[in-house]
């Protein structure tokens, strides 16, 4: 599990997150700031993991998570990991009700954290 796409509406965060993840050994194959953009990238790049911000400006990261899973159902869907500036306990209900494998608080984002969440979600 190496290839990763990040979806967030904040360009600066995308850049910082990319370097952080890549330092940890994940390959960030693409980034997107909107839902359509994200769906296109996922379709084209077939990443192993997609990090999705829960609040994508006016769009909903939860919707995006559902649509990614729905769109790639035939083949093996990527692991969706939700991220947010909100804390785990605030979004737990949302994460649980979504097809995402887990959640990482943005301030704690790292390749290791992502791997842990995916691993935990896979069990």
């Amino acid at each position: 599990m190496r290839r990763c796409v990040i979806v967030d509406d904040n360009e600066r965060f995308l850049a910082v997150a990319r370097s952080s993840l890549e330092r940890g050994g994940l390959e960030v194959v693409g980034t997107a700031t909107t839902m359509t953009d994200a769906l296109d990238q996922v379709e084209a790049l077939r990443p192993d993991v997609v990090l999705v911000d829960i609040v994508l400006g006016t769009e909903s990261g939860l919707d995006l998570a559902r649509r990614i899973v729905a769109a790639t159902e035939a083949s093996a869907p990527p692991h969706v990991v939700l991220i947010s500036t909100h804390r785990e306990d605030e979004v737990a209900e949302l994460v649980a009700s979504s097809p995402a494998v887990g959640f990482v608080w943005k301030a704690h984002l790292s390749a290791r954290a992502v791997r842990d969440v995916v691993a935990a979600g896979e069990q």
Partner: peptide, 21 residues
């Protein structure tokens, strides 16, 4: 707050960790 200060603080925190690394 969310789009401004929080995002910037988050990015800043991550950057610091990157720098630290």
């Amino acid at each position: 707050l969310h789009d401004g200060a929080q995002q910037r603080l988050v990015s800043l925190a991550l950057e610091l960790r990157n720098t630290q690394a």
